[in-house]
């Protein structure tokens, strides 16, 4: 029974991983791609790891999978934030359909 639940979690994770990678291919600029891929791939991988925890049960490997969930969930948004800020400061253009860019306006005001 609990194995089935774990396999269902792994299946959800696979779906979200695939959707995130599809977003990586389809969306137009770095910032949009970061949004889609970070969210979907983080939840997908966390879901796969939780399924692993359910299937293996409470032993060494299961607890390590839980710790790995914590690590991935903490580090992945920080990495996305760092890359987004670096690419904005490094001068990567936003997509041409972008509505508003307060960040560039404020930086020009400072300089």
């Amino acid at each position: 029974m609990i194995d089935t639940v774990g396999l269902v979690f792994v299946g959800f994770g696979l779906f979200f991983d695939l959707a995130g990678c599809l977003g990586l291919v389809r969306l137009p600029d770095v910032y949009n791609r970061l949004q889609a891929s970070t969210k979907c791939v983080t939840l997908g991988t966390c879901s796969i790891l939780f399924g692993t925890f359910l299937i293996t049960g409470i032993n060494g490997a299961g607890i390590k999978a839980l710790l790995c969930i914590v690590f991935v969930a903490l580090t992945s948004p920080v990495a996305a934030h760092a890359i987004a800020r670096a690419s904005h400061r490094g001068g990567v253009k936003l997509w041409k359909g972008t509505v508003v860019d307060r960040y560039a306006e404020d930086q020009e005001g400072e300089a």
């Binding site: 990678c21 990586l24 891929s37 983080t42 790995c68």
Partner: peptide, 11 residues
């Protein structure tokens, strides 16, 4: 960014 995402996929 893609390399970072690849790392999470490998996990």
């Amino acid at each position: 960014m893609a390399i970072d995402i690849l790392g999470v996929l490998i996990v």
